[in-house]
Amino acid sequence: MKLKYTLLLTLFLSLGFLTSCDDDDEEEIAYTATYPISGDWSVTFSIETAPGQFEPLVEHTEVLIYNTAANVPTEVWIDDEGHFWDFKVRTPININNLTFGGENLENMSYNSQVTVTDGQVFLNAVEVNNIMRDSIYFRVSFSDDEEPFGTIYHVYGHRSTGFE
């Protein structure tokens, strides 16, 4: 008799665990207030050598754009994690237009200023690995850029896919 109750109890507990896992499949993904500007972006940094002609300096690197601690739809962090220049700046965004940028932004990586202009995210604009991905473009310049002073770097790419 004791064995019968033990088996029934085990059966009920097992069914309880199985049904609790099914609820996870129905949940929606929760995005921050800065999505779709925020994300992990695979980008190329280049300079313009002649009108309309660009020379890549660093290709297939990463830039992170993420919400601030306040999680408001008016500002983001742009962070290259030292992949190109070692900059991390907080910049204003317009979430409705998917634009971003600012002048003389304080670089949190070290004492300098960064200017980000013409920042724009384009939804489903480029095909990567047979999947339509969001695209990004912005210009960036650095106060401590010595040669040549005032160089404007063009940054363009797509939302990272997780593949090489």
Rank of each mutant, 00 (worst) to 15 (best):
M1Y: 13
M1E: 12
K2R: 08
K4L: 13
Y5F: 11
T6E: 11
L7Y: 13
L8R: 12
L11Y: 07
L11G: 00
F12E: 12
F12Y: 09
L13Q: 05
L13R: 01
S14E: 05
L15M: 12
L15P: 01
L15C: 12
G16C: 12
F17M: 14
L18Y: 02
T19A: 09
T19S: 15
D23V: 15
E27P: 03
Y31Q: 00
A33D: 09
T34R: 09
Y35V: 08
Y35M: 06
G39Y: 13
W41P: 14
W41K: 06
S42V: 14
S42H: 13
F45L: 14
S46A: 15
I47K: 09
T49D: 06
T49Q: 11
P51I: 12
G52R: 15
Q53K: 14
P56A: 13
P56D: 11
L57A: 06
V58Q: 08
L64W: 05
Y66C: 06
N67C: 06
T68D: 05
T68G: 03
T68W: 05
A70L: 12
N71D: 15
V72W: 00
V72D: 04
P73A: 13
I78E: 10
D80F: 01
E81V: 12
D86H: 08
D86T: 03
F87N: 06
K88Y: 00
T91H: 06
T91A: 10
P92W: 02
P92S: 00
I93P: 02
I93Y: 08
N96A: 02
N96R: 03
T99P: 11
F100T: 03
F100N: 02
F100A: 00
G102T: 14
G102E: 06
N104Q: 09
N104C: 01
E106R: 10
S109D: 12
S109R: 15
Y110G: 00
Y110T: 02
N111S: 05
S112P: 02
T117R: 12
G119S: 08
V121P: 04
V121H: 04
F122W: 02
F122L: 07
L123H: 01
L123T: 11
L123M: 09
N124E: 00
A125S: 10
V126W: 04
E127R: 02
N130T: 00
N130R: 03
I131F: 10
R133H: 04
D134M: 03
D134N: 15
D134S: 08
R139F: 03
S141T: 14
F142R: 04
S143D: 07
D145N: 13
D145A: 05
G150F: 08
I152D: 09
I152C: 11
Y153E: 09
V155Q: 01
V155T: 02
Y156V: 07
Y156N: 10
H158R: 04
S160P: 10
T161A: 11
G162L: 12
E164N: 11
E164V: 11
